[in-house]
Write a protein that binds this DNA or RNA. Structure first.
Length: 420
RNA sequence: GGAGGGGUCGCAUAGUUGGUCUAGUGCGCCGCACUUGAAAUGCGGUAGGCCGCAAGGUCUCGAGGGUUCGAAUCCCUCCCCCUCCGCCA
């Protein structure tokens, strides 16, 4: 959410920002609603002041004048009631429109409509060459009995899967390896709920506009698609102590995505599933663009260091305007090389939001002078399974169909190769 | 799921025959005074949202609704916490 005063004073900027994100925006309707909101608020508050004054008076009046005053106030009461009802209507429209206003993308974000316009910033690692015909991750995994999609589908439905044997262990090794690398950098490890109430989704900017991407379960609960949602909700409606900033969390959680707009994409294998696991970095920091940018680079570097430790070739792209979420100011994706696809696939997504999320979530901090500010927020993947397993299986395959274990994971696996 | 008890301005509490409670007190915190310094003591100040150029107004006593001229105080619904019972990884 943006500040309404800021929106009013910078209409053109906000419109241009939305246009860069390819988001259609009802800004004129919002300004009009805000005009009505302000006018009505003044009317209603004047009536209330009047009422408060009168009720003070009534308390000290003798019976005859008292009765007169009371009946006089009854008409004011009716008027006030009418005003309040109108205000309620205007406010709910105002709120609805406010939640649709996107955050403005950074000036350095490239123009473009979809991920095809993302720009490569840098590459790392040598693309693997094979002196045999490399197999895709499904063939490899099936041959080694590491995955069961048929039974996955039988049990869980479309895109269901079971990881088995060493692949299950490899996933857990990755989680733990990741935590062991990230926690020493000052991140507090968390296991967060995936069952989350609506507020945190609205607060992080996933709702109201992406209802259909989420699984909704009973009791007004939704399944989070990322640990960012519960982790940001963690500090909702709090005033933080400035001395505790930056707050850095690394959250492990189950993640659920309906992938409703992804029919026909990645139909085979582990690339795109409805249920997965993620270790996510989340940062709350002071309200400064420079500090946000610094943390953004740091979160990205943390993730790159992990991919490098796994010796997976990757590149980093800066996402174009059309590929940014509602609240994101700027985003880098790390994409890891998948040999049989002959291309890089997104495994990490690093973004910052300024105070877009913290306004919605009401997360503030008190600075040294006692002034309150909305904190800034950021997040980035640390590791997501099973997607990164696709890259490991394919990049680490050997001629005989076995899979080498990345060196840094050997201590976690107790072996250095997966074979029959 | 059953029974009972609670949610008040950082913390702890007062407030339940509706009106000087737009919320008292203690602790904590900040400032000032006293002091060589500190402690102690005294005095003052100590939440936030919204509207407004400002003066000021208004809202918030878990949330939302209702009764009333007027609600922290009465009524309804919901949420959360605690205790006990039941069930349970």
């Amino acid at each position: 959410m943006l500040d309404i005063s800021f929106i009013r004073e910078n209409l053109d900027l906000v419109k241009a920002g939305a246009a860069k994100k390819h988001i259609v925006l009802e800004l004129d309707a919002l300004v009009e609603a805000d005009d009505r909101r302000r006018a009505l608020l003044q009317t209603v508050e004047a009536l209330r002041a009047n009422q408060n004054e009168a009720s003070k008076e009534i308390a000290s009046l003798a019976p005859p004048e008292r009765e007169a005053k009371i009946s006089e106030m009854q008409t004011l009461k009716a008027e006030l009631h009418k005003g309040e009802e109108e205000l309620k209507t205007v406010m709910s429209e105002w709120r609805r429109l406010m939640l649709l206003v996107p955050n403005m993308p950074d000036i350095t974000v490239p123009e473009g409509e979809s991920d095809e316009a993302n720009q490569e910033l840098r590459t790392w690692g040598e693309l693997p060459t094979f002196d045999f015909t490399p197999k895709d991750h499904m063939e490899l995994a099936l041959n080694l009995d590491l995955i069961d999609l048929e039974r996955g589908t039988k049990v869980s439905g479309f895109r269901g899967y079971f990881l088995k044997g060493d692949l299950a262990l490899l996933a857990m090794a990755l989680w733990r390896f990741t935590l062991d690398r990230i926690v020493p950098k000052g991140f507090t490890p968390m296991m967060a709920p995936a069952l989350v109430r609506r507020e945190s989704f609205i607060g992080t900017g996933f709702l109201p506009q992406s209802e259909e991407d989420l699984y909704k379960v009973q009791d007004e609960l939704y399944l989070a698609g990322t640990g960012e949602v519960p982790t940001m909700g963690y500090h909702m409606d709090e005033i933080l102590d400035a001395s505790t900033l930056p707050l850095k969390y690394v959250t492990f959680s189950s993640c659920f995505r309906r992938e409703i707009g992804a029919h026909g994409k990645d139909m085979k294998g582990l690339m795109r599933v409805h249920e997965f696991f993620k270790v996510e970095q989340v940062v709350l920091c002071e309200a400064s663009h420079e500090v946000s940018v610094r943390h953004h680079e740091e979160l990205t570097a943390n993730a790159e260091a992990l991919v490098q430790a796994l010796a997976l070739p990757y590149h980093v792209v800066v996402n174009c305007g059309g590929d940014l979420g509602l609240g994101q100011v700027k985003k880098y994706d790390i994409e890891v090389w998948v040999p049989t696809e002959r291309r890089y696939r997104e495994t990490h997504s690093s973004s910052y939001f300024h105070d877009f999320q913290t306004r919605r979530l009401n997360i503030r901090y008190k600075d040294n002078e006692g002034k309150l500010h909305y904190a800034h927020s950021l997040n980035n993947t640390a590791v997501a399974t099973p997607r990164i397993l696709v890259a490991i299986l394919e990049n680490y395959q050997q001629a005989d169909g076995s899979i080498k274990i990345p060196a840094v994971l050997v201590p976690y696996m107790g072996k250095d190769v997966i074979h029959r």
